[in-house]
Simulated assay, not measured.
Amino acid sequence: MAADFSVVLDELNTTLKSIEAVLRIDDMRNEIADLEQQAAAPDLWNDVEAAQALTSRLSYLQGDLRRVEELRSRLDDVALMHEMAEEEGDEATTAETERELASIRTVIDELEVRTLLNGEYDSREALVTIRSEAGGVDAADFAEMLMRMYLRWAERHKYPTEVYDVSYAEEAGIKSATFAVKVPYAYGTLSVEQGTHRLVRISPFDNQGRRQTSFAGVEVLPVVEQTDHVDIPENEIRVDVFRSSGPGGQSVNTTDSAVRMTHIPTGIVVSCQNEKSQIQNRAAALRVLQARLLVVRQQEQKAEMDALKGEGSSWGNQMRSYVLHPYQMVKDLRTEQETGNTAAVLDGEIDAFIESGIRWRRQQETVDAP
């Protein structure tokens, strides 16, 4: 057993060194010191948005650094403890060190996935839009289930979120919703969730209790930053205002504060109704529109590259099935990741699916590389 322990310990040491190299720990420490100095400036909060971005980045880097340093310390400690336990023939402590090593391996595997997020926009915050697709009222209900799943996932990780817009369906559920996940690398992490999700269950809306298949679409966009230069001329935007509405179409606002924004050249339409004022809703809608246009630009560039390489996209659209009847299973159609604990998944326990999706994407990129 000691030989196995040593092999696993060496393997984890090598992986952690690789992670430290990818994360550039010394550069990270320097950036943290610089951000801490900026955060101490007395006029920091004069620009609230910039201050929030700075403190969010600082908090994220400090968390990353703390995780790596704690892992390094735990690896050193467990190696020493195991060696002493072996020398003294202390079987209880030996067993304890083996459990600790297994725990360390889980955390290192999770952190290794984070190092795979090195795409152009992967470090950005995310804008997530969920839309009901085929399946009528069941699809609208499923869209709301997915929205809750992602918001619970964010809550479990203590990631701040902000809901920009919810369009409720007449009978139950939602037609669409857009919300932000405000943490660095949210886009790189959640972008593997993009695509069509499929639900199979006995419909609670069918009085004959028949099985129903319904679909909902998930779109994930990177939040636009000032460096992206997504400038939209005023004459290319049409803005309509209306009253916010709640479930069942009821009005929840007595003033025309909700905003619908149309980008005339592309026909892209976004709306925001969850802020208190029309000005705030307009600003939020503009951020979503800029994110959509950024992705359009990115897709145009990718199409040009694919044309040069003479190949199309390798991404399939339908990416995950949630089966609640006649058996219980959630299965990712790309990675083969699956679980029978459907209740846990729909309550936000989706890390295993996200991590396998990130690894799968990296494999696809390696295969597609020239």
Results as ranks from 00 to 15, higher is better:
M1G: 13
F5T: 04
F5S: 05
V8C: 10
L16M: 09
L16A: 02
K17V: 02
R24A: 14
I25A: 01
D43M: 15
D47F: 10
Q52A: 03
Q52C: 06
G63S: 14
E70Y: 02
L80D: 12
E87F: 06
A95S: 05
E98G: 11
E100F: 04
L101E: 00
N118C: 13
G119F: 04
Y121F: 15
D122E: 14
E125M: 07
T129L: 05
A134Y: 10
V137Y: 08
A139R: 03
R152Q: 00
E155S: 15
D165Q: 15
K175C: 05
T178D: 02
Y185H: 11
L190K: 01
R198G: 04
L199C: 03
G209R: 14
V223I: 12
T227W: 05
P233W: 05
Q250W: 08
N253C: 04
M261R: 01
Q273V: 08
N274H: 11
N274R: 13
Q280W: 10
N281I: 12
A284W: 02
A291T: 04
R297T: 04
Q299L: 13
A303V: 06
E304W: 07
M329W: 03
D332M: 12
R334T: 02
T335Q: 03
A343H: 09
L346C: 02
L346E: 00
E349K: 01
E349S: 07
F353Y: 14
Q364Y: 04
A369H: 10
